[in-house]
Simulated assay, not measured.
Amino acid sequence: MSDTTATGTPAAQPGRTIETVPVTRVDSGHDLALTVHRLTGARPGPTLVAFGGVHGDEAMGPEEIRRFVSSVDPAELAGTIVAVPVANPYAYAAMSRFTPQDGLNLNRIFPGDRNGSVTEQLAAVLAEIMLQADYFVDFHSSGLYSTVEYSYIMDDGREMATSFGAGLLYHHEPYEGTSSAWAIKNGIASTVCELGGGGQLTDAFLDKAVRQGRNMLKGIGMLAGAPEAIVERQTVMTELVTLRPSKGGTMISHFTPDRLGEVIKGGTVLGEVVDPYTFETLEQLVAPYDSNILVLSREGYTRTAPGDYGFMVGNANTTTTVDELFGT
């Protein structure tokens, strides 16, 4: 194997490196930086950029990145993996969806601003990291009290989403300001994986992140071999709604995380908010479509605040298949 590239510059040696990328200095005197892992493969190939911890209350993401990246031997890899396991360190430390310093949601302000607030500067540096990618994957989970399982299928990331192997896929235009929207605008194929959360079925979801992440690498030619068929059928949802309580208290869930993917009749009470002081039922969260696919749910008992994620369901009557979606 040649030790030079086609341009005559020395080729990077296979292996792992860790880099600290500075972001800014904050008013506490702390130098905010991102930790970036780079796996250089033994063979030439594309570059995959992977983020975890964009939302700090989604603690599964960083661990999914750690296990996924650690499972790949550079000797078997074609191309390069660039991974940022904790994309928002302050939000991760606070276990918050929002950055405490400025209250912003990192995944709504890409590509950020190098001269802006803390979150805006984080987004700007992350966007710069993304620009080296041919492929981009963002590992998310649900937050502190709920559990989720599905992946986004984008027009420019079909191979990533299908080979990742989630049984439920969601197709829609990416929300403005998200990492995936920024990737697509810059010609980078992308997907978003929503796996786990809420402290439920943790080991099973972490195992899925590794198995399905490696399968995705096969699908885009970064690992040898054909991707395996992880599920018998992949269902593509085109309508998805989040049910949020308007009142806080005790959330009693009638559909726990072991029932994710189940089809539920419209009008079914998925859960209810109970006043922990008076025991009064304050609110019911009801399946809105005629036929509903359970995408996000809660354990039997959790606490809840107004506006929290309660349940997420897809419209089972408007689903399609990958082939039908892309006309193949």
Rank of each mutant, 00 (worst) to 15 (best):
M1V: 11
A6L: 15
A6P: 00
T7W: 07
G8H: 03
P10A: 15
P10H: 06
A12R: 14
G15V: 02
I18R: 13
I18M: 14
E19A: 12
R25D: 10
R25H: 06
L32E: 05
A33S: 15
L34K: 06
T35A: 11
A42T: 04
P44M: 08
G45E: 02
P46I: 04
T47W: 04
L48H: 03
G52F: 02
G52Y: 01
D57L: 02
E58V: 02
E63V: 15
E63D: 11
E63L: 13
E64L: 11
L77F: 05
G79S: 09
A83L: 02
A83N: 02
V86R: 01
V86N: 02
N88A: 13
P89M: 09
A94W: 02
S96E: 05
S96D: 13
R97W: 01
Q101P: 06
N105A: 10
L106K: 05
R108W: 05
F110R: 03
G112Q: 06
R114Y: 03
N115D: 14
V118P: 05
L122K: 01
V125I: 15
L131F: 03
Q132P: 01
A133T: 02
D134P: 09
D138K: 05
S141G: 07
S142K: 05
L144V: 12
Y145W: 11
E149T: 08
Y150T: 08
D155T: 11
E159K: 13
M160L: 15
T162E: 15
S163D: 07
G167I: 00
L169C: 08
Y170N: 04
Y175P: 00
E176G: 13
S179C: 14
A183T: 10
A183R: 03
I184C: 08
N186G: 11
N186H: 15
G187Y: 07
I188N: 09
T191C: 15
E194I: 12
L195D: 04
G196P: 07
G197K: 05
G197I: 11
G198V: 04
L201D: 11
L201M: 15
A204N: 09
L206S: 06
R211I: 13
I220S: 06
E228D: 15
R233G: 01
Q234D: 14
Q234G: 13
M237Y: 05
M237D: 01
L243H: 03
R244Y: 01
R244P: 02
M251V: 11
M251N: 07
R259G: 11
E262N: 04
I264M: 09
L270Q: 00
E272W: 03
V273G: 12
T278G: 05
E280K: 12
L282A: 10
E283H: 09
L285I: 10
V286L: 07
P288M: 09
Y289C: 04
S297V: 01
R298M: 08
A305T: 09
Y309A: 13
M312F: 00
M312Q: 13
V313N: 05
N317M: 14
N317R: 15
T319I: 14
V322M: 10
E324K: 14
L325I: 06
G327N: 13
